[in-house]
Design a binder for these strands. Structure first.
Lengths: 206, 206
DNA sequence: TAGATTGTTAATCGATTAACAATC
DNA sequence: TAGATTGTTAATCGATTAACAATC
């Protein structure tokens, strides 16, 4: 917790975590930096450097212990620090995220969904109920939720975001294509799918 | 096209594009680097540097012309270079992406979806038909598709990816939580939702 | 003119890669 | 021992920020 982990390293740690979990399932006793590096198309010294950041020690000629690595990554990324969140917008994307199994296990606790469509209200998705958005303010303070995952359509996105901020939400994970305006004390994280695609599509050039 | 645009810049360009589009809707004649920078919490000289990369020229004391910027960004990012893709896995996430309006307009042309669930076969989503996955090989060569967006559940992800590669797919945009194994000539882009969340959630510390 | 904004260079910061001694 | 792998330092590369002259 103490040390600040750079974003890029956080991202790599989640990949190491997946691969290491595979090794554990296969009962492998060791994993080397170059095995990990190869799977991710990165340099092996980078892997070692990242593990160094975690104070992880490998063994020469042998590598690292998968179980030990897995635990350390989980502790470092705080998978046991449960954080409560709401999904706002119960369309396909909202439902997809509500079902995303990794979130629950890895510290992101989605407590409920919100929508305005009367047909959706009171439905259940993976034990998570869909409420009318007018209930959000009360439930947020009652359940102590300050994270919202915004999956409404583009048009109402800014208005809904304003409403969330009024309701005491402090973190907005924005899956809409809007660049939200928000006061500085609100943390907005834009999930930019279009940019992802373009970065990916541009790879053709090399 | 000629110049290679770094990934980070590509990402910022898509944000500039959104904001500039808003300015156009509001009939603003000018936009300054610091207006853009402020919305994105970045440095204004970074904005100017990015525009320099596009050979875009602003006017002192005035700023940039939104319409001109918008066009240049669209050309640079190749929004008119249509690229054909399939969505593989017609669950909520697949359906959400099939409906994501930005893709169509911005160069990503989703032609069809694939699944194995008999109930879903032949359904239509936004004019896009869902086929049984056994049809993929033929349709890929017929329609000249080499991009697949993988939205199947975690368990079958690697097997489906292997099948896609055999079917001539060259680019896999991976939304599953697996780290896919693929030959080097296949471009895999992992959309790492868990990492996104963690980067976002870690922001609390500052 | 005075003031605001650009374009651009230089300085800083951070991330990746290369190299290699230490270790088992 | 010989060889493989780590841990770590130094070198390189790239991205961001600061600064400021040029411009309108």
């Amino acid at each position: 917790m103490a040390k600040k982990i750079p974003e890029k390293v956080v991202s790599r740690l989640t990949f190491y975590h997946s691969i290491v979990s595979e090794f554990i399932e296969k009962n492998e006793q060791n994993i080397t930096s170059s095995q990990l590096a190869h799977r991710l198309n990165i340099d092996d010294s980078q892997v070692r450097k990242d593990f160094n950041l975690l104070n992880k020690v490998g063994r020469c000629r042998v590598g690292y212990c998968p179980k030990d690595l897995k635990e350390t990554i989980e502790n470092t990324l705080g998978f046991s620090n449960k954080r409560n969140a709401f999904i706002v917008g119960a369309g396909h994307l909202g439902l997809a995220l509500a079902k995303y199994d990794k979130f629950d296990n890895y510290g992101l606790n989605i407590l409920a969904l919100f929508d305005t469509d009367p047909l959706k209200i009171d439905m259940q998705i993976n034990d998570k109920k869909i409420f009318h958005i007018t209930k959000l303010l009360d439930l947020a303070s009652e359940l102590n939720v300050d994270i919202a995952i915004l999956t409404v359509p583009r048009q109402p996105a800014q208005d809904v975001a304003d409403f969330l901020i009024e309701s005491g939400i402090k973190y907005i994970w924005n899956f809409t294509p809007c660049v939200l305006s928000a006061p500085k004390y609100i943390k907005v994280w834009n999930e930019n799918l279009m940019a992802s695609f373009l970065q990916f599509a541009c790879k053709e050039i090399d």
